[in-house]
């Protein structure tokens, strides 16, 4: 997953403004998709990541802030750069609280916008990668049988084979078989790795 995979979603109701931003971002080497309204974007967005949104605060029918709220509700974690013609401090603070990456005043310097886009995309990638790792860990944990899971959790807690056998009231031999199968399924080579994976999977998602 690299910056090449990122798509910049541009939402601005002014045609000329939209086209010029597309041109600028394209000139800087970004892939873009442009929409005239927040609703158009919400209807057509397929969940692609990584990327970021450049969103006009003041738009008829559905303002930038509303789009942000809908995205949060749908659990879509695209970073948002707000553009505002009227530098409204209160609005900026609220947007940032809701997780906007940046709040820029129009017209902004091109490098300011491009820096913000780059930063947002990198943020998106990192976020995506960690999300992917988490998902993979959880998926691998899902493949374990109940007994294998119990054994793995005990290993992660630092128990030795004998202690596990006594806790689960099974034979040492059986513990060894489960331990072997779990490490195979989780693609790990040490009990330390098992511990890290389970710990990671238990953290709440971002």
């Amino acid at each position: 997953m690299t910056e090449q995979d990122a798509i910049i979603y541009l939402i601005d109701d002014d045609d000329a403004m939209r086209r010029s931003l597309v041109y600028l971002l394209d000139s800087a080497g970004w892939r873009t998709e442009a929409f005239a309204s927040g609703r158009d974007f919400l209807d057509q967005y397929d969940g692609h990541v990584p990327g970021c949104m450049v969103l006009d605060v003041l738009m008829p029918f559905m303002g930038g802030m509303e789009v942000q709220q809908v995205l949060r509700a749908r659990d879509i974690c695209l970073p948002i750069i707000f553009l505002s013609a009227h530098g409204d401090l209160a609005m900026a603070v609220q947007a940032m609280k809701l997780g906007a990456v940046d709040f820029l005043e129009k017209p902004c310097k091109d490098h300011v916008l491009l820096d913000a886009v780059g930063r947002s995309v990198r943020h998106s990638i990192v976020q995506c990668l960690s999300e992917q790792q988490l998902a993979a860990a959880r998926a691998r944990l899902e493949t374990l049988t109940a007994r294998e899971r119990e054994v793995a959790e005990c290993l992660a807690a630092g128990d030795c084979n004998k202690t596990i056998a006594r806790k689960l009231q099974i034979s040492d031999k059986t513990v060894q078989v489960h331990r072997h199968n779990a490490m195979e399924k989780l693609h790990v080579h040490s009990t330390a790795e098992i511990a890290r994976l389970i710990l990671h999977a238990q953290t709440p998602s971002a």
Binding site: A16, M17, L21, Y23, L25, S27, A28, G29, P107
Partner: peptide
Amino acid sequence: AHELKQPLAAIGNFARGMDRRIVA
């Protein structure tokens, strides 16, 4: 002001975009 700001901002964006293409 709004009516004038939009085309001026757009012009700026196009010009900067072209500049970047040339530099690159």
